[in-house]
Write a protein that binds this DNA or RNA. Structure first.
Lengths: 118, 118
DNA sequence: TCTATGATTCGATATATATAGAAATATCGA
DNA sequence: TCGATATTTCTATATATATCGAATCATAGA
């Protein structure tokens, strides 16, 4: 992950509603959750939610998928994995051996992303 | 680390100047760097730098220490460690075994902080 | 105490972000 | 095609953040 992407991801998560939203999507797994369902659970007006979903999507942290009338949003585990890798590499001094890797969930979600992230 | 602290840390790092600043401090080690030195290296006006240092300090990511006329700022490895732990725990599904821990640098910088951070 | 230096705080301004109602768009089922 | 539902986009507004010159504060040395 490059610096601009890392900044985008950090900024996307640095907000209460979005952090809670992302955490919820993470627990939901790859199938994700519909926008309406999210709005209800988080008690956020639809238009506000849409704004936050857009922020997360633009940062590459969530993906969108339509199912009938519903739009399902799911956590992009690879992006979070990449962010963790970036932070770990830039926080632990130069030659330190820090083990980041979110491998279980990463493998669950998308095994191919792992190479690009680091 | 709790959610509000995590949000503060994420927000503090979600800015180009501050991310670069923090990365620089990380490479500097526990001794840190004087404000003037930072300002020169990052080519940022003193007042602007002061603002960013305040943001990072308030988020607990850096510490301040006076040496004569100079104020030295150093990376707080424990805070970054805590952030990584928080993100890892909230990104990797529920029961996944993700190893975050920035232990080498944490030990290098301040072995006592480890208990408070997590 | 006076002056120079290092750094912050103040103040003003520009820009970005967050909130949310209203209108528009997309899809489904009848 | 029409109405109902799901969701977004538009629009306005409030709030927060970023920038940086000028003024202020803190320390050291003469």
């Amino acid at each position: 992950m490059e610096e601009p992407q890392a900044i985008a991801a950090l900024g996307a998560l640095a907000q209460e509603t979005r952090l809670q939203l992302f955490r919820m999507l993470v627990t939901c797994g790859p199938d994700g959750m519909s926008a309406g369902n999210i709005a209800e659970r988080l008690a956020v007006p639809p238009s506000s939610l849409s704004f936050h979903l857009q922020q997360l999507t633009h940062a590459g942290l969530v993906t969108q998928r339509r199912l009938g009338r519903n739009l399902f949003y799911a956590a992009e585990y690879g992006a979070m994995n990449g962010l963790l890798a970036y932070l770990t590499e830039n926080c632990c001094g130069q030659g330190a051996s820090c083990a980041p890797s979110c491998s279980p969930a990463d493998a669950l979600a998308r095994p191919s992303t792992k190479t690009t992230a680091a």
